[in-house]
Simulated assay, not measured.
Amino acid sequence: MQNYSVVHWSSLLQRGQEVVNVARSVTPTLKISEPLSRVQVSSMAVKENLILLGGFDGELLCKCVNQPGVAFCTRVTTEDNAITNTVDTYQSPSGSLRLITANNDCKIRVFDAQSFTRVSEFSFRWSVNNTSVSPDGKLLAVLGDSTECLISDSQSGKVVSSLQGHKDFSFASAWHPNGLILATGNQDMTCRLWDIRNPSESFAVLKGNMGAIRGLKFTTDGRFLAMAEPADFVHIFDTQSGFLKSQEIDLFGEIAGISFSPDAEALYVGVADRTYGSLMEYKRRSDNHYMDSFF
């Protein structure tokens, strides 16, 4: 993803192909939504055969991977500085596929992925920089311009827990596949780990080198946690060691995002540096000791 373009990179063929370009006006294929002018992409997610894009002016766009064009697009808010900070999909407790957005206008919005109708809207006291949904679809982690992180009910929006410990604003979160551990990344240069069964205090604090923690991802098997700083450093922690064993990847450039492959065999790091912009791929090392390997 870069400004107005989304490119699919094939690790097998070692080449990329543009799949979405929103540098000009966007006309959706579904008549239930209205065209948008040029969209500068601020956030992205790819899940369940859907590509979701958020924009700097509060836009939400949805493209089906196997269909041409953008299926649905809308501006979820018209307020100034209402950047769409997070877009994602999840399965609701009833089994329905949902789309979720978090915006600077202090709101989280939930859409039905079939009809693209808005089904929920939750308001908070501060700008929401990030939200993530627990694996069972029942809980929302809500982070933003506050030292506290909230756990809310995904259907009612009611706050059920307040996580206290960070010293600045938060920007990233990730749920362990077991649904019991939540990782939160903050501008205080730390990632805190919480057991949601005992949310009164974090059970571990992982520290960065020089900047805020802007990206967090667990592997699908829950074995590793990747933690990205704004530039130069990505840290990988072994969850089976109680997050005590780690590996540091020292690269050059601003980090646009991180992601593991579905089989947990590769880590991808997007570098947004104007000169050295690239997508870096790291393979998991086996050495005949698969369960003890690092990247």
Rank of each mutant, 00 (worst) to 15 (best):
V234K: 02
S286P: 00
M280S: 08
D287S: 11
L225A: 07
A272P: 04
F260G: 01
D238S: 10
R214H: 00
G270P: 02
E229P: 09
S241E: 03
E281I: 06
D287K: 10
K217T: 13
Y268V: 12
I236K: 07
L244F: 00
V271E: 04
F233I: 15
Q247C: 06
D287P: 00
R284D: 01
V271Q: 08
S259D: 12
K283V: 12
S278D: 14
K217V: 14
M291N: 10
D232E: 13
F218W: 09
G222H: 06
A256S: 15
D287F: 08
D287V: 02
H235C: 07
D263N: 13
K283E: 15
G277W: 03
A226H: 05
F233W: 09
G215I: 05
T219K: 03
V269S: 03
M280K: 14
R284L: 03
A272Q: 12
T219H: 02
G215P: 08
E248N: 09
L216F: 06
F260N: 03
A264K: 00
Y290C: 07
R214S: 03
D273C: 05
Y290T: 13
T275K: 15
T275W: 10
I249G: 01
Y276T: 15
R274N: 08
H289G: 10
E281G: 00
V269P: 02
F260V: 02
G277S: 11
A266Q: 15
F233P: 00
S241V: 04
V269M: 01
S259G: 12
T239A: 12
V234N: 02
H235D: 11
G277K: 06
T239C: 09
D221T: 05
